[in-house]
Amino acid sequence: MAGHTPTVDSNTLWGGGISPFNISYGKIMMWFFLVSDAFTFSGLLVSYGFMRHSFVESWPVAERVFTHFPFMHGDHPLLYVALMTFILIMSSVTMVLAVEAGHRMDKNSVIKWMAWTIVGGLVFVGSQAWEWYHFIHGTELGALQLVDGTIVQWVNEAKDSFYLPGKEQIMISGAEAVSMMKNGVEVYGANLTVNEYGLPLFGDFFFFITGFHGTHVFSGVVLNFIIFVNVIKGTYEKRGYYEMVEKVGLYWHFVDLVWVFVFTFFYLV
């Protein structure tokens, strides 16, 4: 944005002695790392899309899976994940405010905004743990896994009739249901091999994608904390610039950016 803007001479720009992009080495490398990381996440989300389109009829609807909200009963689709998204956007704002304060060499503001960013990150990781807990734990009713591995949903607590997966909601009851139930097993919650909400693949992708993102958030919090301690110690004040805050800031915004896509492709679409 501001700062010095040297005139660009295309003849000498790549001749050595200066950074042709007018950015420091460390920041360029952070950017290229983020590009490679973005490829990893894109690979995960694209493979999710592949499997989802391949099994489009029997893919669970995320809205019906993630319906819990703390201290509230009943179904609240989307609300919890919306709250998580809000927390992450908010921590992105506090991060960019810390970077801005660094440009003014305002140590106290950097400390304040970085502290809020760390708090936001920790709350987000905690929310994700809560979400995982409920997904692993499942519903009280559970579901039935037939002999061929198909997951069918109970019609009600009586557990004598069920719906086959698919858009048409075909109900099986009576003698037919009894014979199909005979060798089936009741399943509760989700892990890497069983998923009461439908295809196990859905659970696998949920654990891998949100887990990989959560790992990024966690390492982001750790990095932010290290830089935060350095800021308090006055390391960057002595150095004369706060570029390390900018670098961890790039990483933190990237984590927020990935969540924007996970939110859309896992929970909304």
Binding site: M1, A2, G3, I18, S19, N22, I23, S24, Y25, G26, K27, E100, A101, H103, R104, M105, G240, Y241, E243
Partner: peptide
């Protein structure tokens, strides 16, 4: 470390 040459600073008004 030549980071110093590319560091950006700005004034209170710009901030």
């Amino acid at each position: 470390d030549r980071t110093r040459e590319y560091v950006q600073h700005h004034s209170e008004a710009e901030g």
